[in-house]
Design a protein around this nucleic acid. Sequence first.
DNA 1: TGCCGTGGGTAACGCGCGTTACTTGCGTTA
DNA 2: TAACGCAAGTAACGCGCGTTACCCACGGCA
Lengths: 356, 356
Amino acid sequence: MAKTTTPNHSGAARQRGVTMNDVAKHAGVSRTAVSFVLSNRENASISEETRIRINEAVQALGYRPNAGARALASQRSDWYGIVTEIVTAPFAVDIIKGAQDQAWLDRKFLLIAPSDQADAVGPNQGMEDAATEKLLEQRVEGLLYAATFHRGVHVPESTKEVPTVLINCFDADGKLPSIVPDERAGGRVAVERLLQAGHRRIGVINLDPDIPAAIGRLEGAREALAEAGLELDPELVVPGYATADGGYDAACRILDRYPQEDRPTALFCLNDRMAMGAYDAIKERGLTIPGDIAVIGFDNQELIAAYLRPKLTTVALPFEKMGALGVQTLAALTAGQPIIADQQLVGCPLLERSSV
Amino acid sequence: MAKTTTPNHSGAARQRGVTMNDVAKHAGVSRTAVSFVLSNRENASISEETRIRINEAVQALGYRPNAGARALASQRSDWYGIVTEIVTAPFAVDIIKGAQDQAWLDRKFLLIAPSDQADAVGPNQGMEDAATEKLLEQRVEGLLYAATFHRGVHVPESTKEVPTVLINCFDADGKLPSIVPDERAGGRVAVERLLQAGHRRIGVINLDPDIPAAIGRLEGAREALAEAGLELDPELVVPGYATADGGYDAACRILDRYPQEDRPTALFCLNDRMAMGAYDAIKERGLTIPGDIAVIGFDNQELIAAYLRPKLTTVALPFEKMGALGVQTLAALTAGQPIIADQQLVGCPLLERSSV
DNA sequence: TGCCGTGGGTAACGCGCGTTACTTGCGTTA
DNA sequence: TAACGCAAGTAACGCGCGTTACCCACGGCA
């Protein structure tokens, strides 16, 4: 018998298509037997001998199972879908990576659909319907929604048809389970670190005070101070626009407002971009970091935090972990297990570098 | 007729599965008719009347086509696969975004598989076989390989089975078509910009001199100088380690080596991270940017370039464009069109900000 | 009247595979 | 010798859909 010639029909090209049937013929058994061997059936009554013959045939022909056909027959696709704003995302990619890796471990495939079409409006715009629809057409077993910053979102109705988990965002009007960073604990650990370094007057460069990140982080800061018997001086909390320039301006204001002896000795910047600007403000005034002023950030944007000089001590947003946990939660959900909590908080670890 | 109530079958759960058959029954026609209407067949002999009835049935039942079944029957999946090193990738994400958007426009789905398993070795390690294999099992119509930095790679054998395009890398041993940045033109435009600003003595902070990025950018710089009747002084080209610290060190060396009147008035840093370090070296010496020393970078890493103070003028690596072009090339390939060139160069635009 | 389009559909096959029900040969036991 | 059980496999159905071949009524035309 010829070895690698795939049975071509007449003259036509018939590009590819080694099927289970081909394997079966090559091994001289039925297709069913091949199926049994390939899916490692427990109670398969297949002799060791034929099992080997079949495996050899698979090798010889270079057979590759057709995932689509398998999905159709078995009624399970092994796919999860994730809808995400990949454009504007400096770090949505980390969520995807975490999810991707976990899915890979679970032998699931992750279908990624972009949700950044033109119709996004307002801070709470709905996640993209078209993306969801496409994903459902692929018969994904579960759906993940990932936001680029912690906030409430509305998900499309059709989502109800399949287990769904939200990552880095929460369901503004329903009860979908979600995975979000523990902002409060993060703010707390940041300020605790500063307190531990001996700082007593701590300036805070705030974000838009209405977003979950600002609310949580500030509350954490307050708690840490309270535990040390201190209060958060409202005067020391200055609003910032969430960019380097915003941080620069805010830092200037806070540094210039007081005589040296009243000046805060540490700055808690609610994100790394603002910390980056604060660095400039501090250096311009001939002050050193962390000698004169300690700085601590939030978010751990690698490209910034790891490359600033001195490197920035900051609190990390656990994107990868949230992604992985999202997939795990989805797995539990699709397996029919009860969900642990409808909102899982993931810790934000302190990353010590050199700015405190 | 009630509007949104989806007619549940008897009492059973019947989790999912409105099929074309259900639609056909509901509309009182054959399944074939439904198929014809849904796929908008040209020469379909379907009266306007029944077409409408069918569409109404689709609406009423909330029918959603099963992409897998369709793929099986039609022998085309509408999927492309992309394997990429998503972990280590500060900007692989931009390639994906470009590819994703283009695929979405072409009504293709992009399957993303990670290639960052443990067995990566050396600078030219092969792209992940497992990822490729998985993708082929999904019967993708084409394959994309994306690298995080411009280099030669080896792709798995099995890739031969399906049209393949390389993005931001090239086939080290075959003739697969590839899409890469035009490093030379980029280096040229950077130096031209400095020349135009009146600089005559230009320092260059180099990368590892053996990688395509360094080779191309340096050659471009040389060309630009030659055109202005100048030569690239080898002494002014200092090697750097591709980080902020590396840039800092290199900049210190170059700045401290000459008396003020011989000192270069501009620095061409072959990447933005090194530019970031160079900024610090310059500022430490009490010099201003761009007043005393102009700085130009390469890569346009947003998080750095847009947030440095002053904002960094740099040359952008066209990741998104490369991603989109990769998908377009793949589309041409799968359509059987001849490929334009086996290596397509994509321009690197100059981004003017404030450091020159 | 017979014949031939033509519009408006439908029956039925196959895509590649999972799965269930069934068959067959053979050694064992009563 | 018949009855039985079990190992080793196979035939055949169905998953949801694209597609090809076919069918049927009806009108026009010679």
